[in-house]
Computed example of a mutant assay.
Amino acid sequence: MPFQAAPPPPAPPQAPPQAAPQGAPFPVPPPQWPGWAAQPPAPSRGAASPYPPPAWRPPRRKSGAGAVIGALMGVLALVFVLIVIVGALVGLSDHDETVSPIAIPTFSPFPSREATTDTRPTRNPTSEPTSRPTTRPTPVLNRTAKNNTLYRAGSLAKPNCRAGNASIYNHTQFKALILKTGTCMGKAWAPALERVGIDWSPPKYMIAARKGRGACGDYPSPGSNVPYYCPSNSTIYASTSAMAREYGPLGSWNGIIVSMMAHEYGHHIQSLSGISDSWWRQTLDSGSRSGKLALSRRHELQATCFGGMFMRSIAASYPIDTTRRNTLLWAYSHLGDPPGGPRDHGNTRSNAAWFRQGYTRPSAYQCNTWAVGSSSVS
């Protein structure tokens, strides 16, 4: 069992003038009422009058009835004047607006009288206009193999991915199976990468019935029947007939083959996150063949762990019950570097351990093969 890696608005406007007490139509002090002019001062004592004095006439004696009528007329005139004044006041009060001047989108601290007649709903002056675009800072990514940003991505989404009953001995059905489950892998991985700011794009596929030539060479590679991932053009190459010969003897259940394709998809995740670039720089800097092979094993075993994470993500829908899970674990205990061959993928014990790690602890940081001792990636 490999070592478990540690988890990783504009400034608010000035305050408006103090509001008037309840019921008062304007802030205090009030402005001059419309139509009410200030009264001229009384003429000073002894000043000459611009008008000639009236001619003298003897006073007329009023009768009692006339006095009464005159008094009544005076009262009626006074009442009429009071009615006019009260009506004017009431009209002004009704005309006054209740919208605060700080509701204007410009948030001007000195609104004009026209601004106070705005009938739009009052806003919170400290809130941002809803049309203002929001910008998110570009995340700073760590693209090294050991401390990569990918390790903060957590677990994968759980896509609805059904097994189906494709025959691996039929090229059309086998190719459709690869493409369908590849789509499932994208649905599982894309949210995880996007969650930590890693740009997402799916890989391409080149699937031949027998063999072909790709950007990274022939497929399958000479002496191999397995698919491979080419980072130069982000493409997974596979031969359906070669894979049928290689994996057919493992049983009729296609889940083992899907997990192999999930391993190649894991290389695509390494490429997107920068892990593959970091691995390759370290390989070029290594001065020994054994050092280069050790780095290759870390790279390959991590892809195996990522494959285990994906198989766990579809366990409910594929489905993968206890028997099928045990079949996967058994298969990876028999997959690894062949005796006498190059030690570039890891032995059967390491392959089984890292697939189990991804399946039983399906979080990206648990697949950090770059943070463990050499004995865990042998």
Rank of each mutant, 00 (worst) to 15 (best):
K146P: 00
S131W: 12
G66Y: 11
L72Y: 03
G70L: 13
E114A: 15
L156E: 03
P111G: 02
A65H: 07
I102P: 00
N142F: 00
V68N: 05
V81A: 13
S108Q: 09
R143E: 06
N170T: 11
T134R: 15
G70Y: 04
D94N: 14
F107L: 15
N160P: 00
N124S: 09
I168S: 10
K146C: 01
T126R: 14
T116W: 09
F110E: 12
S155Y: 04
H171L: 05
G164F: 10
A103V: 06
E97W: 07
R162S: 09
G154K: 05
R162V: 13
I83C: 10
V90S: 04
T134I: 11
A153L: 02
G70T: 12
V81R: 08
Y169Q: 15
S100L: 12
K158D: 05
S127G: 08
L82M: 08
D94A: 15
F107R: 14
S131M: 05
E128V: 13
N170E: 08
P139D: 04
L78C: 09
D94V: 14
S112C: 02
T119E: 07
T138C: 01
F110I: 10
P125H: 06
S93M: 10
R113N: 07
A153T: 01
L156P: 01
G70D: 15
R123I: 14
G164R: 05
K158W: 00
S100P: 06
T138G: 01
S112T: 15
V140C: 03
T149W: 01
R132A: 10
E128D: 08
P159Y: 01
S127I: 05
T135G: 06
L141P: 01
A88H: 08
T138V: 13
G74H: 06
Y151K: 04
P125T: 07
G74M: 11
G87W: 08
R143C: 01
L92R: 15
V86D: 05
P129N: 08
T144Y: 02
C161Q: 04
R143W: 02
L72V: 12
S167I: 06
P137S: 06
P121C: 05
D96N: 13
R136E: 11
C161G: 05
S108M: 08
T116P: 00
S108H: 05
R123P: 02
V75A: 13
